[in-house]
Nucleic acid binder design. Structure first.
Lengths: 140, 140
DNA sequence: TTAAATGCAAAAAATTTGCAGACGT
DNA sequence: ACGTCTGCAAATTTTTTGCATTTAA
Protein backbone atom coordinates (compact mmCIF):
# COMPACT_ATOMS: atom_id res chain seq x y z
CA UNK A 1 0.00 0.00 0.00
CA UNK A 2 1.32 3.35 -0.94
CA UNK A 3 -1.82 5.30 -1.68
CA UNK A 4 -1.71 7.48 1.36
CA UNK A 5 -4.13 9.95 -0.18
CA UNK A 6 -6.91 7.41 -0.22
CA UNK A 7 -5.97 6.07 3.17
CA UNK A 8 -6.14 9.52 4.70
CA UNK A 9 -9.35 10.55 3.01
CA UNK A 10 -11.08 7.35 4.00
CA UNK A 11 -10.05 8.15 7.53
CA UNK A 12 -11.63 11.57 7.28
CA UNK A 13 -8.31 13.41 7.17
CA UNK A 14 -7.01 15.84 4.60
CA UNK A 15 -4.14 14.54 2.56
CA UNK A 16 -1.53 17.13 3.41
CA UNK A 17 2.09 17.01 2.36
CA UNK A 18 3.12 16.58 5.98
CA UNK A 19 0.84 13.62 6.58
CA UNK A 20 1.82 11.90 3.37
CA UNK A 21 5.44 12.21 4.36
CA UNK A 22 4.89 11.03 7.90
CA UNK A 23 3.25 7.90 6.56
CA UNK A 24 5.98 7.60 3.99
CA UNK A 25 8.87 7.55 6.42
CA UNK A 26 7.05 5.34 8.90
CA UNK A 27 6.41 2.82 6.17
CA UNK A 28 9.96 3.10 4.87
CA UNK A 29 11.68 2.61 8.21
CA UNK A 30 9.05 0.46 9.85
CA UNK A 31 9.19 1.82 13.38
CA UNK A 32 9.98 5.39 14.35
CA UNK A 33 9.91 7.62 17.39
CA UNK A 34 8.40 11.09 17.27
CA UNK A 35 11.87 12.62 16.94
CA UNK A 36 12.83 10.14 14.23
CA UNK A 37 9.79 11.08 12.20
CA UNK A 38 10.33 14.77 12.70
CA UNK A 39 13.96 14.68 11.63
CA UNK A 40 13.30 12.50 8.64
CA UNK A 41 10.34 14.45 7.28
CA UNK A 42 12.07 17.76 7.97
CA UNK A 43 14.68 16.74 5.42
CA UNK A 44 12.16 17.15 2.63
CA UNK A 45 10.07 19.79 4.38
CA UNK A 46 12.38 21.96 6.49
CA UNK A 47 9.63 24.23 7.80
CA UNK A 48 7.92 21.27 9.45
CA UNK A 49 6.93 21.85 13.05
CA UNK A 50 7.41 19.27 15.76
CA UNK A 51 3.97 20.22 17.04
CA UNK A 52 2.51 19.15 13.71
CA UNK A 53 4.16 15.77 14.05
CA UNK A 54 2.73 15.32 17.53
CA UNK A 55 -0.74 16.42 16.47
CA UNK A 56 -0.75 14.11 13.50
CA UNK A 57 0.54 11.08 15.32
CA UNK A 58 -2.26 11.46 17.85
CA UNK A 59 -4.85 12.07 15.16
CA UNK A 60 -3.72 9.19 13.00
CA UNK A 61 -3.71 6.87 16.00
CA UNK A 62 -7.27 7.89 16.79
CA UNK A 63 -8.21 7.13 13.20
CA UNK A 64 -6.48 3.79 13.35
CA UNK A 65 -3.86 4.61 10.75
CA UNK A 66 -0.87 4.53 13.08
CA UNK A 67 -0.17 2.28 16.05
CA UNK A 68 2.00 2.95 19.08
CA UNK A 69 4.66 0.42 20.02
CA UNK A 70 5.75 1.11 23.60
CA UNK A 71 9.20 -0.23 24.37
CA UNK A 72 10.86 -0.99 27.71
CA UNK A 73 13.45 1.63 28.56
CA UNK A 74 12.86 3.74 25.47
CA UNK A 75 10.40 6.11 23.92
CA UNK A 76 7.52 4.63 22.04
CA UNK A 77 7.83 4.00 18.36
CA UNK A 78 5.03 4.16 15.82
CA UNK A 79 4.19 1.92 12.91
CA UNK A 80 1.53 1.70 10.21
CA UNK A 81 -1.54 -0.20 11.32
CA UNK A 82 -1.39 -3.65 9.80
CA UNK A 83 -2.19 -7.27 10.49
CA UNK A 84 -1.46 -8.37 14.03
CA UNK A 85 2.17 -9.27 14.54
CA UNK A 86 4.89 -9.52 17.13
CA UNK A 87 8.12 -7.61 17.55
CA UNK A 88 11.68 -8.77 17.98
CA UNK A 89 13.41 -5.87 19.68
CA UNK A 90 17.19 -5.72 19.84
CA UNK A 91 18.37 -4.26 23.13
CA UNK A 92 21.77 -3.47 21.61
CA UNK A 93 20.96 -1.54 18.45
CA UNK A 94 17.30 -0.80 19.06
CA UNK A 95 16.15 -2.43 15.84
CA UNK A 96 12.55 -3.59 15.80
CA UNK A 97 11.60 -6.41 13.49
CA UNK A 98 8.08 -7.55 12.72
CA UNK A 99 7.21 -11.21 12.86
CA UNK A 100 3.93 -12.79 11.95
CA UNK A 101 1.92 -13.79 14.96
CA UNK A 102 1.91 -17.48 15.59
CA UNK A 103 -1.58 -18.84 15.21
CA UNK A 104 -0.80 -21.35 17.95
CA UNK A 105 0.02 -18.73 20.54
CA UNK A 106 -2.90 -16.57 19.51
CA UNK A 107 -5.20 -19.47 20.13
CA UNK A 108 -3.85 -19.80 23.65
CA UNK A 109 -4.35 -16.11 24.33
CA UNK A 110 -7.90 -16.22 23.08
CA UNK A 111 -8.66 -19.21 25.20
CA UNK A 112 -7.10 -17.68 28.29
CA UNK A 113 -9.12 -14.51 27.79
CA UNK A 114 -12.28 -16.50 27.52
CA UNK A 115 -11.53 -18.30 30.76
CA UNK A 116 -10.88 -15.00 32.49
CA UNK A 117 -14.01 -13.38 31.05
CA UNK A 118 -11.69 -10.82 29.55
CA UNK A 119 -12.94 -9.21 26.32
CA UNK A 120 -9.71 -9.38 24.36
CA UNK A 121 -9.17 -6.60 21.87
CA UNK A 122 -5.51 -6.47 21.07
CA UNK A 123 -2.43 -8.56 21.68
CA UNK A 124 1.01 -7.14 22.13
CA UNK A 125 3.95 -9.51 22.03
CA UNK A 126 7.45 -8.09 22.23
CA UNK A 127 10.50 -10.29 22.46
CA UNK A 128 13.59 -8.52 23.73
CA UNK A 129 17.07 -9.80 23.04
CA UNK A 130 20.08 -9.42 20.77
CA UNK A 131 19.65 -9.60 17.01
CA UNK A 132 21.91 -11.67 14.83
CA UNK A 133 23.78 -8.67 13.51
CA UNK A 134 24.70 -7.44 16.99
CA UNK A 135 25.72 -10.92 18.10
CA UNK A 136 28.17 -11.11 15.23
CA UNK A 137 29.60 -7.69 16.01
CA UNK A 138 30.02 -8.58 19.66
CA UNK A 139 31.93 -11.73 18.80
CA UNK A 140 34.57 -9.79 16.90
CA UNK B 1 8.39 -11.73 50.14
CA UNK B 2 8.28 -8.75 52.40
CA UNK B 3 11.86 -8.48 53.58
CA UNK B 4 12.76 -5.45 51.59
CA UNK B 5 15.79 -4.76 53.76
CA UNK B 6 17.45 -7.96 52.65
CA UNK B 7 16.35 -7.50 49.07
CA UNK B 8 17.85 -4.04 48.93
CA UNK B 9 21.09 -4.94 50.66
CA UNK B 10 21.62 -7.92 48.43
CA UNK B 11 21.22 -5.56 45.52
CA UNK B 12 23.88 -3.28 46.92
CA UNK B 13 21.44 -0.55 47.95
CA UNK B 14 20.93 1.02 51.33
CA UNK B 15 17.63 0.17 52.93
CA UNK B 16 16.18 3.64 53.31
CA UNK B 17 12.70 4.43 54.51
CA UNK B 18 11.86 5.80 51.08
CA UNK B 19 12.95 2.68 49.25
CA UNK B 20 11.19 0.36 51.63
CA UNK B 21 8.00 2.28 51.09
CA UNK B 22 8.35 2.41 47.33
CA UNK B 23 8.68 -1.36 47.28
CA UNK B 24 5.84 -1.61 49.74
CA UNK B 25 3.31 0.29 47.70
CA UNK B 26 4.40 -1.33 44.44
CA UNK B 27 3.89 -4.75 45.97
CA UNK B 28 0.60 -3.71 47.53
CA UNK B 29 -0.93 -2.27 44.38
CA UNK B 30 0.87 -4.45 41.87
CA UNK B 31 1.49 -1.91 39.13
CA UNK B 32 2.08 1.79 39.63
CA UNK B 33 3.16 4.82 37.67
CA UNK B 34 5.81 7.21 38.95
CA UNK B 35 3.11 9.64 40.08
CA UNK B 36 1.12 6.86 41.73
CA UNK B 37 4.13 5.81 43.74
CA UNK B 38 4.99 9.36 44.70
CA UNK B 39 1.50 10.17 45.91
CA UNK B 40 1.11 6.96 47.82
CA UNK B 41 4.46 7.05 49.59
CA UNK B 42 4.10 10.77 50.31
CA UNK B 43 1.12 9.88 52.48
CA UNK B 44 3.42 8.29 55.04
CA UNK B 45 6.43 10.45 54.26
CA UNK B 46 5.22 13.92 53.31
CA UNK B 47 8.69 15.36 52.74
CA UNK B 48 9.33 12.82 49.99
CA UNK B 49 10.73 14.33 46.81
CA UNK B 50 9.53 13.31 43.39
CA UNK B 51 13.18 13.37 42.32
CA UNK B 52 13.91 10.69 44.87
CA UNK B 53 11.19 8.51 43.40
CA UNK B 54 12.63 8.93 39.92
CA UNK B 55 16.16 8.24 41.06
CA UNK B 56 15.12 5.14 42.94
CA UNK B 57 12.98 3.69 40.20
CA UNK B 58 15.90 3.97 37.81
CA UNK B 59 18.34 2.54 40.33
CA UNK B 60 16.10 -0.33 41.33
CA UNK B 61 15.48 -1.18 37.69
CA UNK B 62 19.23 -1.29 37.09
CA UNK B 63 19.58 -3.62 40.05
CA UNK B 64 16.79 -5.81 38.76
CA UNK B 65 14.46 -5.14 41.68
CA UNK B 66 11.80 -3.27 39.70
CA UNK B 67 10.58 -3.83 36.16
CA UNK B 68 9.00 -1.36 33.78
CA UNK B 69 5.69 -2.22 32.15
CA UNK B 70 5.17 0.09 29.17
CA UNK B 71 1.54 0.44 28.20
CA UNK B 72 -0.03 1.62 24.96
CA UNK B 73 -1.47 5.09 25.32
CA UNK B 74 -0.42 5.55 28.94
CA UNK B 75 2.59 6.13 31.10
CA UNK B 76 4.66 3.14 32.06
CA UNK B 77 3.89 1.34 35.25
CA UNK B 78 6.38 -0.46 37.45
CA UNK B 79 6.16 -3.77 39.25
CA UNK B 80 8.36 -5.91 41.48
CA UNK B 81 10.63 -8.21 39.52
CA UNK B 82 9.18 -11.68 39.63
CA UNK B 83 8.72 -14.82 37.60
CA UNK B 84 7.93 -14.18 33.97
CA UNK B 85 4.27 -13.49 33.41
CA UNK B 86 1.82 -11.77 31.10
CA UNK B 87 -0.51 -8.84 31.65
CA UNK B 88 -4.21 -8.44 31.08
CA UNK B 89 -4.68 -4.70 30.71
CA UNK B 90 -8.15 -3.18 30.88
CA UNK B 91 -8.51 -0.29 28.47
CA UNK B 92 -11.52 0.99 30.40
CA UNK B 93 -10.32 1.21 33.99
CA UNK B 94 -6.60 0.79 33.47
CA UNK B 95 -6.31 -2.23 35.74
CA UNK B 96 -3.36 -4.50 35.10
CA UNK B 97 -3.62 -8.11 36.10
CA UNK B 98 -0.79 -10.61 36.13
CA UNK B 99 -1.24 -14.01 34.56
CA UNK B 100 1.22 -16.86 34.58
CA UNK B 101 2.94 -17.27 31.27
CA UNK B 102 1.72 -20.20 29.28
CA UNK B 103 4.47 -22.75 28.88
CA UNK B 104 3.06 -23.59 25.47
CA UNK B 105 3.40 -20.07 24.10
CA UNK B 106 6.81 -19.64 25.69
CA UNK B 107 7.99 -22.69 23.86
CA UNK B 108 6.88 -21.18 20.58
CA UNK B 109 8.68 -17.92 21.30
CA UNK B 110 11.88 -19.75 22.18
CA UNK B 111 11.68 -21.78 19.03
CA UNK B 112 10.99 -18.76 16.87
CA UNK B 113 13.95 -16.94 18.40
CA UNK B 114 16.20 -19.86 17.65
CA UNK B 115 15.09 -19.92 14.04
CA UNK B 116 15.74 -16.21 13.73
CA UNK B 117 19.13 -16.44 15.44
CA UNK B 118 17.75 -13.98 17.98
CA UNK B 119 19.25 -14.26 21.47
CA UNK B 120 16.03 -14.02 23.44
CA UNK B 121 16.33 -12.39 26.81
CA UNK B 122 12.89 -11.31 27.88
CA UNK B 123 9.32 -11.81 26.75
CA UNK B 124 6.64 -9.21 27.10
CA UNK B 125 3.06 -10.25 26.52
CA UNK B 126 0.30 -7.73 27.10
CA UNK B 127 -3.31 -8.48 26.28
CA UNK B 128 -5.50 -5.39 25.99
CA UNK B 129 -9.23 -5.54 26.38
CA UNK B 130 -12.06 -5.03 28.84
CA UNK B 131 -11.99 -6.73 32.21
CA UNK B 132 -14.99 -8.55 33.60
CA UNK B 133 -15.77 -5.80 36.09
CA UNK B 134 -15.97 -3.13 33.40
CA UNK B 135 -18.05 -5.34 31.12
CA UNK B 136 -20.61 -5.72 33.87
CA UNK B 137 -20.70 -2.00 34.54
CA UNK B 138 -21.14 -1.27 30.85
CA UNK B 139 -24.07 -3.61 30.64
CA UNK B 140 -26.00 -1.76 33.30
C1' DT C 1 33.21 7.85 59.78
C1' DT C 2 32.06 7.95 55.26
C1' DA C 3 30.06 6.77 51.11
C1' DA C 4 25.56 6.85 49.60
C1' DA C 5 20.94 8.84 49.63
C1' DT C 6 17.64 12.60 50.17
C1' DG C 7 15.31 16.93 49.11
C1' DC C 8 15.29 21.08 47.02
C1' DA C 9 15.48 24.11 43.32
C1' DA C 10 16.80 24.82 38.89
C1' DA C 11 17.49 22.96 34.26
C1' DA C 12 16.39 20.24 30.52
C1' DA C 13 13.42 17.49 27.78
C1' DA C 14 8.99 16.15 26.12
C1' DT C 15 4.40 17.23 25.03
C1' DT C 16 0.36 20.26 24.57
C1' DT C 17 -2.11 24.41 23.51
C1' DG C 18 -3.91 28.72 21.22
C1' DC C 19 -4.11 31.25 17.46
C1' DA C 20 -3.23 33.66 12.93
C1' DG C 21 -2.35 32.53 8.44
C1' DA C 22 -2.10 28.83 4.73
C1' DC C 23 -4.03 25.08 2.32
C1' DG C 24 -6.94 21.08 0.68
C1' DT C 25 -11.33 20.08 -1.05
C1' DA D 1 -15.32 29.81 0.26
C1' DC D 2 -15.05 26.87 4.19
C1' DG D 3 -13.39 24.32 7.53
C1' DT D 4 -9.23 21.97 8.44
C1' DC D 5 -4.37 22.02 9.05
C1' DT D 6 0.13 24.12 9.83
C1' DG D 7 3.77 26.56 12.17
C1' DC D 8 5.03 29.34 15.69
C1' DA D 9 5.62 30.63 20.31
C1' DA D 10 4.26 30.05 24.78
C1' DA D 11 2.61 27.08 28.38
C1' DT D 12 2.58 22.64 30.65
C1' DT D 13 4.15 18.47 32.00
C1' DT D 14 7.65 15.15 32.74
C1' DT D 15 12.21 13.90 33.84
C1' DT D 16 17.00 14.93 35.06
C1' DT D 17 20.71 17.24 37.40
C1' DG D 18 23.73 19.57 40.95
C1' DC D 19 24.55 20.39 45.35
C1' DA D 20 24.20 20.99 50.44
C1' DT D 21 22.54 18.21 54.09
C1' DT D 22 21.22 13.95 56.18
C1' DT D 23 21.46 9.09 56.99
C1' DA D 24 22.46 3.96 56.92
C1' DA D 25 25.96 0.92 57.83
Amino acid sequence: MTDYTTLLKESGLKATFQRMNILGVVEKYGHMSVEDIYEEVAKVHPSLSLATVYKNIILMMEKGVLVEVPIVGKKSKYELAKADHMHLICTECGAVEDKMCLSETDAFFSELSKEEHFKLDRRQVNLYGVCQKCQIQEAS
